[in-house]
Amino acid sequence: MAEQVALSRTQVCGILREELFQGDAFHQSDTHIFIIMGASGDLAKKKIYPTIWWLFRDGLLPENTFIVGYARSRLTVADIRKQSEPFFKATPEEKLKLEDFFARNSYVAGQYDDAASYQRLNSHMNALHLGSQANRLFYLALPPTVYEAVTKNIHESCMSQIGWNRIIVEKPFGRDLQSSDRLSNHISSLFREDQIYRIDHYLGKEMVQNLMVLRFANRIFGPIWNRDNIACVILTFKEPFGTEGRGGYFDEFGIIRDVMQNHLLQMLCLVAMEKPASTNSDDVRDEKVKVLKCISEVQANNVVLGQYVGNPDGEGEATKGYLDDPTVPRGSTTATFAAVVLYVENERWDGVPFILRCGKALNERKAEVRLQFHDVAGDIFHQQCKRNELVIRVQPNEAVYTKMMTKKPGMFFNPEESELDLTYGNRYKNVKLPDAYERLILDVFCGSQMHFVRSDELREAWRIFTPLLHQIELEKPKPIPYIYGSRGPTEADELMKRVGFQYEGTYKWVNP
């Protein structure tokens, strides 16, 4: 592979701008107003304001973009700056750019259920340069409990009458099928589907988006991507930290609602779906819905739930269990780990287990898709061969690698495990991989909904998990304890083995 010439960040961002501006969906010269509902909250200060700053800094926003914060707290732009700027990672050389960014910011205080507050917000936006005809993007960085009041008031008082209007809704989209349907029906009564952007930030990850290209742009994968060759698929999300004093919020939802029903299920769809007619948003989402419709409700015998306990040999936070978090209700049975087996009941995947695993306070930070292939028929190497695996590593250190057998150097035919490896950090030294939120917010500006969740996708996802969630809430089974920093409950490994996964433990990928 030829040595790549190092590029400056300015040059890299210039390439990104060229890609972005050559499309006809990006209205570079139009006025846009980006409204952050819930501007005083954690999500706004840690993710949304920093993301908008990065896009502005790199010249990736339309030229005439204004940012308006809205929340109940009586704040000023200076207050917003004070709480969000520490997350910007701005350099001293960017000081003038930073001043320009905050000059485009404003803030309006108001209630979430008060019509007069929204009329005041609308008047404020109209007073901005060309504000009355601007395109408006409303980001709901809010708890779902206020979605209905907020969307109703936005629709009645704050819509642009000339430009387009788009609304970005953060997960969780309800707690179960019934609450999700209620919320979807409410929002759909106010906005068209092409105006609604239900954001799952995992769909903005580079390697998640790469799944489609790997599958449908490489001839070698087509013939082997089926039940005849693939023994099982494992989708993993692991965090090495616990709730760390923020367990009160987590306890309301648990690990299945927080990660599995959305992030992991979306990745499953991209692995299992048929080739779409095109890369058009609805063509892709149509195929994802077909996959979900082929999955039956989760069966309790295919589920393992766990909850982390303190590690007596650990240090600091590792010595504390979930129930030691003062914000967690006493005696909570909320799971911090889950392993679930699903089956896609169609011709391509009949009988292939899709194993979804996620948890907190585990032994490493990792998100990946792992396809394990069947054993080689007619073994001539005296059971020395391990199964081939194709691994798409989402985070950290984005990579695609194939675990395969090669001859060990020497005189004899002794096979050993090795890999074919594409590590993004080595291959793409001159490429700026956008943060997931950067990519998705740019998608909203461009009107691309491919990486957002459609209402029928959402409904099918909740259909699969709601009976299990209701059973857990009714019966309150005690989750299996696992030690902070471990791989999780051993019962999860036993479940995976029972459905056909072979864990060798003899080879570990190392970032080159």
Results as ranks from 00 to 15, higher is better:
54 W>P: 08
196 I>F: 05
24 D>I: 13
47 K>T: 02
132 S>H: 12
164 W>G: 06
30 D>G: 05
145 T>N: 15
225 W>V: 04
127 A>F: 15
89 K>Y: 12
66 F>Y: 15
206 E>P: 11
33 I>N: 10
59 G>R: 03
129 H>A: 13
254 G>W: 10
239 E>Q: 03
257 R>V: 04
202 Y>D: 00
11 Q>I: 08
141 A>F: 03
172 P>C: 03
120 R>Y: 14
202 Y>K: 00
244 E>Y: 10
97 K>H: 08
187 I>R: 00
250 F>L: 03
45 K>P: 06
109 A>L: 06
97 K>S: 11
123 S>A: 14
105 N>E: 00
173 F>V: 03
140 L>E: 02
156 E>Y: 08
209 Q>R: 04
145 T>S: 09
46 K>A: 03
233 V>T: 04
173 F>H: 03
210 N>Q: 03
124 H>Q: 11
80 I>P: 01
184 S>R: 06
242 G>L: 02
83 Q>T: 06
190 L>H: 15
231 A>D: 09
159 M>T: 12
37 M>P: 13
22 Q>D: 09
250 F>I: 03
63 E>D: 07
226 N>V: 03
237 F>N: 04
112 Y>M: 04
17 R>A: 15
101 F>I: 02
166 R>Q: 03
213 V>N: 05
186 H>T: 07
163 G>F: 10
168 I>L: 15
240 P>G: 12
149 A>N: 14
120 R>H: 11
135 N>T: 08
180 S>D: 02
174 G>L: 01
40 S>F: 03
112 Y>I: 08
138 F>V: 09
91 T>G: 07
155 H>F: 11
252 E>C: 10
168 I>T: 15
74 R>N: 12
214 L>F: 12
174 G>F: 05
169 V>Y: 01
19 E>K: 14
134 A>E: 10
37 M>T: 07
61 L>F: 15
59 G>H: 02
111 Q>Y: 09
218 N>S: 04
87 F>I: 09
82 K>D: 13
139 Y>R: 00
108 V>R: 07
121 L>N: 00
167 I>K: 02
31 T>K: 03
183 L>H: 01
91 T>V: 08
209 Q>V: 05
236 T>L: 04
8 S>K: 11
224 I>N: 08
140 L>I: 12
29 S>I: 09
239 E>A: 08
253 F>V: 06
180 S>K: 02
43 L>E: 02
